[in-house]
Simulated assay, not measured.
Amino acid sequence: MSLIPVAEAQARMIALGAPLPIETVPLFQAIGRYAAADLLAKRTQPAADLSAMDGYAIRFAERPGPWTVVGESAAGGGLDAALLPGQAARIFTGAPVPEGADTILIQEEATRDGAILTMSGEGPPAIGAHIRRAGNDFAAGSLLLPAGTKLNAPAIALAVSGGHADIAVHRRPRIAILSTGNELVPAGEPTPGVMLPASNGPMLAAMLARDPVEARDHGVVRDDLDLIAAAFMRLKDQADIIVTTGGASVGDHDLVLPALKKAGASIDFWKVAMKPGKPVMIGTLGNTIVLGLPGNPVSAFVTATLFLRPLIAHLLGATDPIPATTTARLGAPLPHCGSRAEYLRGRWRDGAIIPITSQDSAALFALAQAEALLVRDIDAPPLAAGDPVQIITLA
């Protein structure tokens, strides 16, 4: 099976499953999820003309006064009667503008002697100054959040302001994480000889900890065809995504692919034109999507960034689940890129991004210092320090 480009692999992965079923949840439970349908405003914001400053409600044409202060308007309340000519009202930020007033004189430019008010500074620059007009933010019936919008804190505040207490979203994906390898031992246990701590499972679980998913690390399975196939059969009814690390290459002990076939899976693709992370594999086992990632921890991290997290975002209903790239200034030269796209670990220095010295796919110390991935397309030309480069920022 020939190598396929990263973008094609991502598109084929996304096509394997539709967003998960829709449920309605309280807004405080929706953080990080995506609106499953267009959300319309139930109310107008502001509902009336409101003051944007502390000061006095006046008629612009009556500057510089004097005015007689006849009452006050505070947030949540207001005057019972309209202002007559020559009258003003004390007003506070967020309070309704009384009928008969058309401008706010801020308190720093006002002088008051008892009930008598005069303008002492330059005054408001134009009629309507310092007033937030009714519907200036949004009107009832207007579109607040299109379907597919990620629900961050401002989006949730907007939905609440629009009159909503809950929202339709897609169900949280259930993720089963499975590591394979005879050389792996659970975290914290002794590692005699050349044994290794199983870091990929905890790393992937940590990557997903802030995402709206139900992720569970199922530990390590030895390099045994029947054991791995049995694990797939056991997990397929428990998870929307089974993500494996290790055993996805071509060695005698790389058994994930044959184990998937033994369990009855359909393989969509295997091997992607990228570095690190070439032996990425994806297929379906019943209604479950299976994503096989490399065993080297850096490769697992990079491929999880480019495949696992976008797949999760797609199942959650994201409009564009693929990680966005941004342009940065390169702080060190880069050579010509070869026949595979490269995702170099980098960090910021003096406002520029530089590749970390060690790009080895097992170098976890270097990975822990990384702040971004430098994206190099297949056959990309050399770059000099100061040139623009595309990056994916790492959270």
Results as ranks from 00 to 15, higher is better:
T191Q: 14
L293Q: 14
L260I: 07
D224I: 03
I241D: 04
V250A: 13
P297M: 06
A239Q: 01
P297N: 06
V250I: 15
H218L: 04
I242C: 04
L208C: 04
G193N: 10
G292D: 08
V298R: 04
V272W: 06
V185F: 12
S199P: 00
L293A: 06
K261P: 00
G286F: 11
P297A: 06
L285E: 14
K275Q: 15
A259Q: 09
N296T: 10
I289H: 07
A215C: 15
S266N: 10
E189H: 14
L257N: 00
M233D: 11
L255W: 09
N296D: 08
V272I: 13
A198M: 15
D223V: 08
S249M: 09
L196M: 14
E214Q: 10
D268P: 00
N200I: 03
P212I: 06
A198C: 02
K275E: 12
G292R: 07
G201K: 04
G286D: 09
P279N: 12
V298Y: 12
G251H: 07
R222I: 02
M233N: 13
I241R: 06
A209V: 01
P212S: 06
A263L: 04
P258V: 00
G219W: 07
G251F: 08
G201D: 02
I289F: 07
Q238L: 15
P294E: 00
K278P: 02
I267G: 03
A187T: 09
P297F: 07
V213N: 11
P186H: 08
K262T: 05
N287S: 13
V221H: 08
G193P: 07
T244R: 03
D268F: 03
D252Q: 13
R234M: 12
A230C: 02
P202N: 09
K236G: 01
K275D: 12
G264W: 12
R234A: 15
G277E: 12
K275I: 13
P186S: 09
M281C: 13
G246I: 08
L291K: 06
M195V: 03
G201E: 04
G188M: 14
V290R: 05
P212V: 10
N296S: 15
V250Y: 02
R210H: 11
V256I: 15
G286V: 10
L285R: 14
G201T: 04
L196G: 00
L291Y: 09
G246L: 08
V243R: 05
A230G: 04
A265K: 06
L285G: 13
D268W: 05
P294T: 01
S249W: 10
A229W: 07
R216W: 00
A205H: 12
P276R: 10
M203N: 06
Q238M: 10
L255K: 06
I289E: 03
D224C: 13
G219F: 03
I267W: 03
L225P: 01
A263M: 01
M203T: 09
P294M: 04
M207V: 05
A265H: 08
S266Q: 15
R216E: 11
S266I: 05
S249P: 07
G193E: 12
L227G: 05
G247T: 04
P202E: 08
N200W: 10
V221S: 14
P190G: 03
N287G: 14
P190C: 06
I267H: 11
V213P: 11
N296K: 09
G247Q: 03
L235D: 07
D240K: 02
N200H: 11
L260T: 07
G188E: 11
K271I: 01
P186V: 05
A229G: 03
G277T: 06
I242Q: 03
